[in-house]
Amino acid sequence: MSSVSDIIEQYLIKILKETPSGTIQVKRSELAELFQCVPSQINYVISTRFTVEKGYMVESKRGGGGYIRIRKLRFSKQKNYYDVLLKMIGNRMTQQAAEDLIARLTEEEWMTEREGRMIKKLISREVLDLPVSLRDSVRARIMRSVVTTLFANKGE
């Protein structure tokens, strides 16, 4: 059985896919009423499931006329996408951020499901048994290498 968070996420992804612009604007209170949950549940779903690593840009305005605007990030040029990914990875990357990025690259067919599972294992805490600051640094280096290799191979 799916959790309320899963159901809210699936609903938002569905309406995003149905929107040609790739952008939706929703009201937190209306979503909470629709799913019979508290507005903080909506905040939780938005902040954990619609991240930049997963390929979304979120803007929100609080208050009576407030809204949440979610946009699926798309890039017209491969080079722009590559540059954004490398900047996003930076010099340190948490395991969750790396896993989100792997899921996004798999969803966008930059890598196969099998490759994604292998890379997730390689960047896991169990494999990178190092102090946190060093682990996040090594993980970022691995992810930069993965992205560079994927983009280099797409040109072939």
Score class of each variant (00 low, 15 high):
Q95N: 08
K120R: 15
W110L: 13
E109P: 00
V147G: 07
R135M: 07
V58C: 04
G63K: 07
N91G: 02
R62W: 02
L86E: 13
I123E: 04
R139W: 03
V127M: 13
K54S: 00
E126R: 11
C37L: 10
P39S: 03
S47I: 02
T106Q: 14
Y67P: 09
T149Y: 10
E99C: 10
R74S: 05
G65T: 03
R139C: 01
L85Q: 03
R71M: 07
R104L: 15
L101N: 09
E126K: 12
R144W: 13
E108P: 01
I119M: 08
S47L: 07
D100W: 09
Q41S: 11
N43C: 01
K87G: 13
V52D: 08
V52I: 01
R71H: 14
Q78I: 06
A140F: 03
A97M: 03
N43W: 00
I119N: 10
L86A: 05
V58R: 04
Q78N: 11
S133C: 08
Y82D: 13
R117S: 11
R74N: 12
R135S: 15
D136L: 01
N43I: 00
L101M: 15
E109C: 03
R49P: 01
M93T: 10
L130A: 08
I119G: 02
D100T: 02
Q41H: 02
F50D: 06
S47T: 13
T48G: 04
D83M: 12
G55Q: 14
M93Q: 13
G55W: 04
E126D: 15
I102G: 07
K79W: 08
V146R: 06
R117V: 04
S40Q: 13
S60Y: 05
G64F: 01
S145R: 10
V132G: 04
S40W: 00
Y82L: 07
D129C: 14
E113F: 11
T148R: 12
R92T: 05
L134A: 05
I70R: 03
L122R: 06
R114W: 06
V146W: 10
R125Q: 13
I42D: 01
I46N: 10
Q95S: 11
T51F: 03
G66D: 08
I142N: 01
L130V: 06
R144M: 14
V132D: 15
A98D: 05
V132P: 14
I123C: 06
V146P: 09
S137E: 14
A97V: 03
L101Y: 11
T48S: 05
V38E: 05
G63I: 13
Q78W: 06
Y56E: 06
I42K: 05
P131R: 12
V132S: 07
K79R: 15
Y67M: 04
N91P: 00
V127F: 08
Q96S: 14
T149N: 15
T149F: 14
D83G: 08
S47E: 11
R69M: 11
Y67H: 09
M111I: 15
D83R: 12
R144G: 14
E109A: 09
R92G: 05
